[in-house]
């Protein structure tokens, strides 16, 4: 399962107004670590589909949202609950470490 992409147009609907906890992966094509962490996020998404929505936002295509959330380093993974950012994880990490960072939202 590949995490679906969100855009400026559907960000409110997919993320802000989502009743579930959502992790937004801010990424870009030219970012090696983003490509490396992407399949790991897909796995976490597949294994935790009932607890967490994982979506991807391309910062190249949507610079305004990247600026709004003050992204200066990618991959940046932001967890949203009720429209608010409750957790930020920066940088590609191995799966066990990411799961540890996200533990509060995977239970």
């Amino acid at each position: 399962m590949t995490a679906r992409s969100v855009t400026e147009a559907n960000f409110d609907q997919e993320v802000i107004n989502n009743e579930k906890t959502v992790l937004v992966d801010f990424w870009a094509e030219w970012c090696g670590p983003c490509r490396a962490v992407s399949p790991i996020l897909d796995q976490i998404a597949a294994e935790n589909a009932d607890k967490l929505d994982i979506v991807k936002l391309n910062v190249d295509e949507h610079p305004a949202l990247a600026a709004k959330y003050q992204i200066t380093s990618i991959p940046a993974m932001k967890v949203f609950q009720k429209g608010e950012v409750v957790k930020t994880v920066i940088g590609a990490k191995p799966k066990p470490q990411l799961e540890k960072d996200l533990a509060d939202y995977l239970v």
Binding site: C34, Q70, T72, S73
Partner: peptide, 12 residues
């Protein structure tokens, strides 16, 4: 880190 401090110019 991730708020202006970076180790990867090509990424950030």
């Amino acid at each position: 880190s991730g708020r202006g401090v970076s180790w990867c110019a090509t990424c950030d």
